[in-house]
Design a protein around this nucleic acid. Structure first.
Lengths: 260, 260
DNA sequence: CGCCCTCTTGAATTAAGTCAAATAATGTGG
DNA sequence: CCACATTATTTGACTTAATTCAAGAGGGCG
């Protein structure tokens, strides 16, 4: 396991409590996959030194994206996959009427743009939720390289498979669960993903607005706001604006149970 | 374009109006991808004769699945992808409580099991909605073969990419649209998929029950039933049990517009 | 032919949405 | 650094779309 440090529990200001841990920040100063704190999550998983060198050679590194800027837009020609290095992003489908449909939140180590392989154009857009940095991966070259590195080939397939699986669960959540269960589900999923990345599963900062959450879950902002209040009253969590501290993970899980 | 024949419009009984066209039935008598009527949709897309031979060699063909039987179950060890050859299937997540969450309907040419690549176990179950036949594709061998056939490698990635894209749209549909728009969206999507397979876009048979539809869309069966009645009253379609004839595709499309 | 299961329809209920308004954060220019 | 403007979030009151409950009709299968 890599030496991630979880945020300690001392009181801290909102500013200080960024989604990006000091460790990841440090890692992003360097240039190589091998030295990136995310190598256990991202593309390089399971590769040996020689293969990593080849992958490193492939990747354009460290484009920085300010908060609110697009990583890519739906309809643009697809050449690059994006590996989120630090920060976070939302992906969204944009409707002709200008309406935005948030379809996911991306965290460091996530790969963006996979749905564009078919059709050669991005099918969704991605917007940075905070200052973020990405690795740009020319897809065609990745495809070639993965023919010579079976481990890489398999890992790309695994990442795509995982995304399909995650989307299946989202469909089930959005179509079957109550508002309460949807929000509980999102919080637990985020908690788990933070944990996988070496952060605390109990305490984290949401980089997305209430309105982004509502949009993703198919609820009204007011409903999301009321649910946070309700969860606080039920002692399930503390929500100080974007900062969340989960107090009762178990009860939160039982809310998700689809017994209805 | 392959010589598909659309169902003619003369009156016919429900039995006669199976989802499986005579052409596909005929094709499935033979054994090779090259002679399968679905080769433009399924795995062999874009492959030359030599490559097709290799793919053919790989594929175990024609397991027949009676209506209601599982193609595979969530949790079972994953070794095979399934290409649906004829018939149709529903995929579902099963909850500990025994509750089933339908997450998709599969038609001939569709590939099933892609979400199992990560984790080596099927993550969902698939049940035949009518008597169906499948090609069993050993995944590891497909993976090896695709290292030597770039076109095959790319096509597998495309198929997975397309599935991710389709799931994104499902998330948007299920989380943002009214009941009316959700059903309209499903009908249009099915219509389109039938059309891609050489059937009529206007007239087709649904192999799934109202309850499966309701489950997928996150609605109550009663709501789905009422919506079919409403659509008939609005002259948007004729629905005689499972047999659907779309009368006004355009208005149906406008219902899906997410203006709300 | 008759039972069972699916589907349809009606009436009552409710979860979540909309509208409205207050409050809290954030940003901007002087 | 402060005053003001803007935007995000919360809370309350009311409305509504869709659910649930209940009951009846229609097909399909043994």
């Amino acid at each position: 396991m890599i030496g991630y440090s979880n945020p300690p529990n001392r009181p801290r200001s909102h500013r200080e409590f960024a989604m990006v841990s000091p460790v990841v920040e440090l890692a992003s100063v360097r240039n190589l996959c091998q030295q990136c704190g995310l190598y256990k999550l991202c593309l390089p998983v399971g590769l040996g030194k020689t293969d990593l060198d080849q992958l490193d050679h492939l990747i354009k590194r460290r484009r920085s994206i300010p908060k609110g800027d697009y990583l890519y837009r739906a309809g643009e020609p697809f050449t690059l996959l994006y590996a989120l290095r630090s920060g976070s992003a939302k992906t969204l489908l944009q409707h002709s009427s200008g309406m935005e449909h948030v379809i996911g939140f991306k965290l460091p180590g996530d790969l963006l743009g996979l749905s564009a392989i078919n059709g050669n154009h991005y099918t969704n857009s991605a917007i940075a939720l905070e200052t973020s940095s990405v690795c740009e991966i020319p897809f065609t070259q990745l495809e070639s390289l993965s023919r010579t590195i079976p481990g890489l080939q398999h890992h790309v397939l695994e990442l795509m498979s995982r995304e399909i699986q995650a989307e299946h669960e989202k469909v089930a959540v959005c179509s079957k669960l109550s508002a309460e269960a949807r929000l509980a589900s999102l919080l637990l999923t985020l908690s788990d993903r933070f944990h996988q990345r070496g952060y605390s599963a109990q305490e984290f900062n949401l980089s997305m607005s209430r309105s982004d959450i509502a949009n993703l879950l198919g609820l009204a902002v007011e409903t999301v706001s009321r649910l946070f209040t309700q969860f606080e009253q039920q002692q399930l969590l503390l929500a100080d604006r974007k900062h969340i501290k989960i107090l009762n993970m178990h009860t939160l899980s039982t809310l998700v149970e689809m017994i209805q």
